[in-house]
Design a protein around this nucleic acid. Structure first.
Ligand code: MG
Ligand code: MG
Length: 1225
DNA sequence: ATGCTAGGGGTGTTCA
DNA sequence: TGAACACCCCTAG
């Protein structure tokens, strides 16, 4: 016996662990005590610094100079403060646990000998289903774990007889009798070694996608035989039968379908016998010989137990290190925190419920001096063991003793669990299978697949599972991020490369290591708190109850599994033969038989779309300032399925799939009886309506409300997932024609809705799949609402069930592109909020720096302020931001970019061009576990030559930890960030804002403006140009523009050129049929002279603009200065030292732009013609424009040279800068 | 092992 | 040499 054993055994099995009481009750409202050590370290973490500065001003820490970037105040708790508030179990009694084997069956079984068990999970072994759940031990009044082994589950096969005998590769005329089928099948079963079987002919229906199977009601031969007999291969057929269904159906599926078990619930089991087989680690075991004895309680059974029993939940947090010599991941610290008797429906947060903790640490080589002593004396003691094996044994002992029903983790199945399994195996830990609830001897760890099966009997709630990710809104799902956003607590991250420094045994004190242990320990609480906050267990339970699968499948599988189960239940009840579960190999085989189908069903990569989806309208781009009504169909696709009765049983599908273009089937006639899918969805929707009705009850308790809310959510999720699974080729109930029909109807409905709006003279400015954005053209809420209601009524009249509704009202909306817009939403009460969709600032590959910049610029654009002010503010902000960034005051955190790995890093064919792949490969080389779907953080740095990169060069991307590490030479590439992360998003925001210009914005940020001259893409011409200005008349627009003055070469006098007077204000014009004529001496002015004079004037306006003079509006100041930007718009007080005024540009971008537009307008023949069309002056203008065609075209050309008409009609500064250079000379 | 399609925006390669 | 295309990632619905 080695030393490790002794350590484990020194911990008595049923002793009240001291550590359970170590965490003291929270001290009410006492400020968190933060040790000096923590304060010192917190300098590393910018967020933590902020927090401490705010709450504890007297803590002496380094405070960085305030930056000019506005940062939201972070109101977060420090993790240490949280740790001290965790509650310990109240009394000794609570801590007394039932040892295995002490539960007596007479205290569990009912008086009539029946067993009541709330089943949670199962394990299937050779056709035997071992259900694991909780039973009430009346002796202790506690719910204890129990296992019921259900024997005697029979396979159910459905054999489809052929009408005529099939022989020699083709049909014959010989009719097939029942006896023929029976006979042939008897031979086949004999060949496969099936000894015991029964068969009978029954009527069943079929309605699915295999068109070689007769649809509708027909006769089938049902074959029943036990699971201990061999399986018949899928796809078996013979001369007298064409198909065999159900050959590979699992015992679990048969059990839940036949017994109508819908997810975790109380089961009434008759004839259960106590078993001593010890198949599980449960407190008590039973066996049942007939599955018919297992039944859920009837809904109206008064005596049935109703509530979910209390569960034991254990949150596991691990710390590992890579042993580079052996290339193995070893466990250093394991911490488990356990909550017993948890009512999952109770919304009380975990810190308010008692919990116990066990934390075990082992050294890398040796512990720093005094650690063992501190392990015992700390207020919350922990176990310091000498070796990893002892750690594992102690962990297993804790799991075995507490027997958790639920394991909560973060990235547990992804990495921690795998590492743990390998160590358990390698170090031959005692009774390793206690990690789950089933005793096992052989230890096989699957390399490719999931190893959850080794946890069978316990629910695994992993925060990084796909199901959890769907419930938690987060960009990275890192624990640190979620703790910050969902718990408002600052978690401290440790660079995994630094792990060994915490275990340094040459340190004089163990403080550093203890800190590390506490960080691991608190994570267990964090995980539990997050899972509780997002209500992971209650929601997944409801989903499971609706679908009728197993809870663990909902927690760790995809939604397709749930959808399959709900449909299996539904179709089984109605006596349908359902499609079999296909495995990849089988599918490919079938495809080959049918000829060279290029389609590879198994292909998991996201290929091209297989059918058309939602319709997206081309947005009418620009900033809209009249109320826009967002009219949105409620759950469009589920509603369509109901409205048009779209179902496997009702829609007639084309048989040949080889058709060039897949035809969209017709909707069934209206007298067709309701299909299964529409009915199922209707049931879900009606139940949801009922629940939502209950929720209106004002006297309902918060707990009840939250329960209903979850129910309501689960119903909605289930209804909405139906359509997606129709189109999912991996689903047993996949039906591309039905999916395509659903979306087709969606497109049709949206088109009709748009047409209806337009017929009502309402402009539809955008729409996506199920929504139309209607321009109400009004600017008050009541008016807008009135239009919305009228429109809603007219739309809804057209459908039985489909309903459009006003989803939001936008006071202002900036439409940038399809799926990209931002709006100021306003509600009835007049409160405003900003809604952003699809913009760069919503994406994880844009850093905080970028998001903040976008948000600020967007706020200005949506402010409703005058364009001129908006443009100025943007310029000022960008100038200041550029300076702040270059000064190095912005923390590294703000530069972090996130990107997800679509596959394992080494699988990329073009690794070199993707920054996140490069970073991932580097992490992997250092031993950090990196795999497909991980979100990789990185910062773009200067190259080794210190030069900026033109684009996001992959090899210049580094993990933030690499930059933070002391002694790092890495420098953030500020220019690259200012360009690709600030300028580009801002340019996209400003694209339709007049007066902003690419080069100018670039210049503000200190970037080379020459690189951002307007592009000459001619697709821009097509873009509608919507701003407030474009809606006003030319007269109004150009009222502030200076006139074009022409100097007469003959008389040297100057006169004003007023164009063609297209608006007909007065009759006198200097433009005659023979050209321009001097207003003073009537001498002709040469066309070239007019053009040159105009260009000279344009240049003078441009240079006026670029001199950038500003004027102060302060009383008696009027300072004219060119120094601007650094202090924003405050007057620098050169004239009046204490001036409080603000400075304004003397000549703005907008003024210049407008001036150029004016000059162009003077010579614009087309415009003159179109504005006079139909008026008395039309003929006159037409002859004028014809006679002076060349003059007009030349002058328009000159103006366009500066306006860059082919771009966005913005001033082209590229050539202007060259021009400025020339005048300086 | 796995819901769907539409679409923008980035990078890199290919082909006229 | 430039557009056309493929691929990757992320988001909207
Ligand atoms: Mg909708
Ligand atoms: Mg919508």
């Amino acid at each position: 016996m080695d030393v490790d054993e002794v350590v484990v055994k020194s911990e008595p099995v049923d002793d009240d662990d001291e550590d359970e009481f170590a965490i003291k009750k929270p001290v009410a409202k006492q400020a968190p005590r933060v040790p000096a050590a923590a304060a010192r370290r917190r300098v590393v973490n910018a967020t933590a610094v902020k927090h401490e500065v705010k709450r504890e001003p007297d803590v002496d820490i380094e405070i960085k100079p305030a930056t000019r970037i506005e940062r939201k105040p972070v109101d977060r708790t420090h993790w240490q403060a949280v740790q001290e508030t965790l509650v310990a179990p109240k009394s000794d009694l609570d801590a007394v646990r039932v040892p295995q084997g002490s539960t007596k069956s007479e205290n569990v079984l009912e008086a009539d000998g029946s067993l009541r068990i709330f089943w949670l999970d199962f394990l299937e072994q050779e056709g035997v289903i071992h259900l694991v759940g909780k039973v009430l031990d009346r002796a202790s009044g506690k719910y204890v774990s129990a296992c019921v082994s259900i024997n005697g589950i029979q396979r159910n096969l459905f054999v489809k007889p052929r009408p005529t005998r099939f022989s020699g590769g083709r049909e014959t005329d010989i009719e097939v009798t029942k006896a023929d089928v029976y006979q042939e099948f008897d031979n086949i079963r004999n060949k496969h070694g099936i000894e015991e079987w029964r068969a009978k002919f029954v009527n069943r229906k079929y309605a699915f996608e295999d068109h070689t199977v007769e649809h509708g009601d027909s006769e089938w031969m049902k074959v029943v035989y036990p699971f201990d007999q061999p399986e018949i291969p899928v796809g078996t057929s013979g001369a007298t039968f064409s198909h065999v269904f159900g050959a590979n159906t699992s015992a679990f599926e048969l059990l839940v379908l036949k017994r109508r078990i819908m997810g975790p619930c109380w089961l009434d089991i008759k004839g259960a016998e106590v078993s001593t087989k010890a198949t599980s680690w449960c407190k008590i075991e039973f066996t049942v010989s007939d599955p018919k004895n297992v039944n859920p309680f009837k809904d109206d059974d008064e005596t049935a137990p109703k509530d979910t029993p209390p569960l034991t939940m254990m949150s596991i947090s691990l710390r590992t290190i890579v042993n580079h010599r052996e290339n193995k991941t070893e466990i250093l610290v394991a911490s488990v925190r356990t909550w017993e008797g948890v009512n999952i429906e109770d919304p009380t947060p975990p810190e308010k419920q008692p919990s116990s903790v066990t934390t075990i640490v082992r050294p890398i080589e040796k512990f720093p001096p005094g650690l063992e002593q501190r392990a015992r004396s700390e207020r919350s003691p922990f176990q310091a063991v000498k070796a990893e094996r002892a750690l594992l044994n102690s962990l297993l002992a804790t799991i075995g003793r507490l027997d958790p029903d639920v394991i909560v983790g973060h990235n547990f199945l992804g990495s921690g669990f795998e590492a743990l399994l390998y160590r358990l195996k390698e170090l031959k830990a005692d009774q390793w299978s206690r990690i789950g609830r089933f005793r096992r001897k052989g230890f096989t760890i699957s390399k490719a697949g999931s190893n959850v099966r080794l946890m069978a009997g316990r629910l695994v709630a992993d925060l990084s599972s796909d199901a959890a990710k769907g419930m938690i809104s987060s960009t990275t799902w890192s624990l640190t991020e979620m703790v910050g956003t969902h718990l408002k607590v600052t978690r401290e991250d440790v660079d995994p490369e630094d792990t060994h420094t915490f275990f340094d045994h040459t340190l004089s004190t163990p403080d550093k290591l203890i800190q590390f242990i506490r960080l691991c320990e608190i994570d267990a609480y964090f995980q539990m708190a997050i899972s509780s906050r997002v209500q992971m267990l209650p929601l997944t339970k409801q989903l499971t109850n609706l679908a009728g699968n197993s809870w663990n499948l909902t927690l760790n599988g995809g939604r397709a599994v749930r959808n399959e189960f709900i449909l299996l239940h539904e179709f089984h009840r109605l006596k349908y033969v359902c499609p079999d579960k296909m495995f990849n190999k089988q599918k490919i085989k079938i495809v080959n038989e049918q000829g060279e189908e290029e389609e590879v069903v198994a292909g998991h990569k996201r290929g091209k779309a297989k059918y058309a989806g939602g319709l997206v309208f081309e947005p009418k781009r620009g900033l809209w300032d009249t109320y826009i009504l967002v009219m949105d169909f409620n759950s469009l696709y589920p509603s369509i399925i109901q409205e048009y009765n779209i179902d496997f049983t009702t829609v007639e599908r084309e048989e040949d799939e080889n058709a060039e273009e897949e035809k969209i089937p017709d909707v069934p006639p209206s007298d067709m009886q309701q299909g299964i899918l529409p009915r199922l969805i209707a049931t879900l929707v009606n139940r949801r309506r009922q629940v939502k009705g209950l929720m209106k009850d004002k006297s309902a308790s918060p707990a009840k409300l939250s329960q209903w809310d979850i129910k309501q959510q689960a119903l909605k999720l289930t209804a909405n997932s139906m359509y997606g699974c129709l189109g999912f080729s991996g689903s047993r109930f996949a039906s591309r024609p039905l999916a395509a029909l659903t979306t087709f109807k969606g497109r049709e409905i949206l088109t009709h809705t748009r047409e209806l709006a337009e017929s009502l003279q309402l402009d539809v400015v955008y729409g996506d799949t199920d929504s139309v954005f209607v321009n109400s053209n009004v600017t008050t809420y009541p008016e807008a609402l009135k239009i919305a209601n009228e429109f809603k009524k007219l739309v809804n009249e057209r459908y039985k069930l489909l309903e459009i509704d006003l989803d939001a009202t936008f006071e202002r909306v900036l439409l940038l592109n399809k799926k990209k817009y931002a709006a100021v939403k306003i509600d009835e009460a007049g409160s405003r909020s900003t809604e952003v969709k699809g913009l760069d600032m919503k994406r994880r590959e844009f850093s905080k720096l970028s998001k903040d910049a976008s948000a600020t610029v967007l706020k200005e654009i949506l402010s409703g302020d005058a364009t001129e002010n908006v443009v100025n503010k943007i310029h000022e902000y960008l100038t200041s931001l550029g300076e702040t960034v270059r000064s190095g005051e912005v923390p590294i955190e703000d530069f972090i970019i996130f990107k997800r790995l679509g596959k394992n890093p080494e699988d990329y064919p073009d690794k070199k061009s993707q920054p996140h792949v490069q970073v991932a490969l580097r992490m992997k080389a250092k031993g950090t576990a990196v795999r497909a779907h991980d979100v990789i953080p990185y910062v773009l740095c200067l190259g080794l030559d210190g030069k900026t990169a033109r684009s996001a060069q992959a090899d210049r991307a580094y993990h933030p930890d690499d930059l933070r590490r002391s002694g790092s030479e890495l420098k953030v590439d500020y220019d690259l960030y200012l360009d690709s992360q600030v300028l580009q998003p801002v340019l996209r925001l400003c694209e339709s804002i007049e007066g902003t210009e690419r080069a100018r914005l670039a210049e503000c940020l200190g970037l080379d403006p020459a690189r951002y001259t307007s592009s000459s893409g001619n697709e821009m011409q097509e873009r509608a140009f919507f701003t407030f200005e474009s809606q006003i008349t030319d007269k109004e627009r150009f009222k502030d523009a200076s006139p074009l003055t022409v100097r007469c070469p003959s008389c040297e006098g100057t006169f004003t050129f007023d164009g063609m007077q297209a608006d007909g204000t007065d009759g006198v014009t200097v433009l005659r049929h023979k050209g321009v004529q001097c207003a003073l001496c009537d001498a002709p002015v040469h066309p070239a002279s007019v053009a040159i004079q105009m260009e000279t004037q344009i240049r003078s306006y441009i240079s006026k603009y670029y001199l950038g003079w500003t004027v102060c509006d302060g009383d008696g100041c009027n300072a004219r200065t060119r120094s601007m930007g650094v202090y924003g718009r405050r007057c620098l007080g050169f004239v009046k030292p204490d001036c409080k005024g603000t400075v304004h540009p003397e000549y703005t971008d907008l003024q210049l732009y407008n001036q150029l537009l004016y000059f162009r307008h003077l010579f614009d023949a087309d415009k003159a013609l179109s504005t006079t069309r139909g008026s008395a002056r039309f003929d006159e203008v037409r002859t004028l424009t014809q006679a002076n065609a060349k003059l007009l075209a030349d002058c328009v050309g000159v103006a366009d040279k500066y306006l860059d008409r082919n771009g966005r009609r913005y001033v082209d500064l590229g050539s202007l800068f060259g021009f400025m250079e020339r005048i300086r000379l």
